[in-house]
Design a protein around this nucleic acid. Structure first.
Length: 481
DNA sequence: TCGTATT
């Protein structure tokens, strides 16, 4: 077989000097002349993810930096498949596993490439399984078994990289452990050989040996547990799977209003809203606000005439920072402060804050079709193009935190669109859990829009939190000299 | 709580 190594592996290009492949390197019929320099990689080679790469650098530019640690088998800068734009990261595989380890320890978080404000990331790609595929969870150990006992048990199956018995704070064993092998095959052999094979002294059933949960699995498990606990308090199971999270938050808010209007006993909407655990927190907060909300919203409570989410809180006397947008007379104190009016980018339309709220209202109005996904509810705006441009000019970029957990990019755009042209909006999400980190960025194309948005939205109260909206820190803020 | 990018 003269095929390139590893099936989809990079072609042994006609140029022997090419120690790595690029996207445009053609796959010629070069099998006849492999030459002396066909790259081969170790079977246990590690594919590295490289992040925080300046978008101006291509494979050729990066090669020298990484070659220092060994021969490169493949280096590919990630590009958007539609636009071809540099995504700011790359995959890197060395021929030798050891080169990857060296590069990781020498570079990861150790060096910052020109123009970046965070250090380069060099770590095994997500596809490498983060080592979880060779890490085992061991259950049903005896309480008296320590690390050495566990090692003895697993040592016949391969090289043990890590062995940790889980213990309570007082040091007593929890009867389980993590064991990490040098390879996936060794781990599998241990599962085959040990799982259920015996019952340890003092254990209530036979030994458990399985792959350890990945981060994602752990996160899912946690959420499921929380959901289970909550549904014990609100036993009214209804399918809510496709319901957008923020819709749910608003639904829940409305549910509270409805509940107030209807008196004791949760209505069906409230029952639905109570399904999601993170919304339950809103419930606790919203409930005390009900009297004020009801008093100020004569039409409130009816579907389709939602009082804006923040409004009940605003009228509840939490301070002047909370913008008023409930359509009630005399609720616009924030905007009569002598500042110049909003940019006339939307002639004939109500003030931008009203629009911002209108976005939320429209979203909430999707509630009769509660199963509509977020994108449907927000489909009025065409700006769903692939986001590549991340930053606007200096003074145009906002940093926003205390975002509701339910806020995604779409909600962020929608909320800030009324103040100007949004160049980009990004909510940060934990990769392992897919949960929002509750902060994000919005970039406008001009500083006035940014300032207007700060004026209007900083302190904007949602649930029990207030948005913090401020200019993003300049790039060099944490570089003293 | 400061741009996140995983073929």
């Amino acid at each position: 077989m003269a095929a390139a190594p590893g099936g989809s592996a990079p072609p042994a290009g006609p140029s022997p000097r090419l120690g790595f492949s690029t996207a445009d390197s053609g796959i010629g019929m070069s099998g006849l002349n492999p030459g002396p320099a066909v790259p081969m990689k170790d079977h246990d080679a590690i594919k590295l993810f490289v992040g925080q790469i300046p978008r101006g650098l291509d494979e050729q530019d990066l090669k020298p930096l990484f070659e220092e640690f060994g021969r490169i088998y493949e280096l590919t800068v990630l590009k958007d498949r539609l636009t071809g734009l540099h995504k700011g990261c790359a995959f890197l595989t060395y021929c030798a596993r050891d080169s990857a380890l060296k590069a990781q320890s020498a570079l990861h978080e150790q060096k910052t490439l020109p123009g970046m404000n965070r250090p380069i990331q060099v770590k095994p790609a997500a596809s490498e399984g983060r080592g979880e595929d060779r890490k085992l969870f061991v259950g049903m150990l005896g309480k008296q078994q320590g690390e050495e006992d566990v090692r003895r048990l697993f040592q016949p199956f391969g090289h043990i990289e890590e062995c940790t018995v889980l213990r309570s704070p007082d040091g007593t064993s929890k009867g389980c452990a993590f064991v990490k092998f040098g390879s996936q095959g060794e781990a599998q052999a241990a599962i085959q050989g040990l799982h259920g094979s015996r019952t340890m002294a003092g254990a209530s059933s036979s030994l458990v040996v399985k792959l350890a949960d990945t981060d994602r699995e752990r996160a899912l498990r946690r959420m499921q547990q929380m959901a289970g606990q909550l549904s014990a308090f609100h036993p009214a199971p209804l399918p809510l799977g496709a319901c957008g999270a923020y819709t749910t938050a608003i639904l829940q808010h409305q549910a509270a209003l409805l509940a107030a209007a209807q008196g004791p006993g949760l209505g069906p909407v409230a029952a639905v809203a109570a399904q999601m655990q993170h919304v339950a927190a809103f419930s606790l907060v919203a409930a005390p606000l009900l009297p004020a909300a009801a008093a100020n919203s004569p039409a409130g409570g009816g579907p389709g005439t939602l009082p804006g989410l923040p409004a009940p809180i605003g009228v509840n006397g939490f301070g002047p920072l909370t913008p008023q947008a409930n359509g009630q007379p005399g609720s616009d104190t924030l905007y009569n402060n002598g500042l110049s009016p909003y940019p006339a980018q939307s002639p004939g339309v109500a003030d931008p804050l009203q629009q911002a709220y209108a976005g939320m209202h429209h979203y909430a109005a999707a509630y009769p079709s509660a199963y509509a996904p977020v994108s449907t509810a927000f489909s009025q705006q065409p700006s769903a193009l692939p986001q590549q441009q991340r930053e606007g000019p200096e003074g145009c970029n906002l940093f926003i935190y205390h975002l509701p957990q339910e806020f995604g990019d779409a909600e962020l755009i929608q909320t800030f669109l009324p103040f100007g042209a949004v160049v980009s909006a990004k909510v940060f999400v934990d990769r392992a859990t897919n949960q929002s980190k509750c902060f994000g960025f919005v970039s406008f194309d001009n500083p006035t829009s940014a300032q207007t948005a700060i004026q209007a939205m900083n302190g904007f109260q949602i649930g029990m939190k207030r948005l913090k909206v401020q200019l993003k820190r300049p790039k060099d803020a944490n570089r003293p000299y």
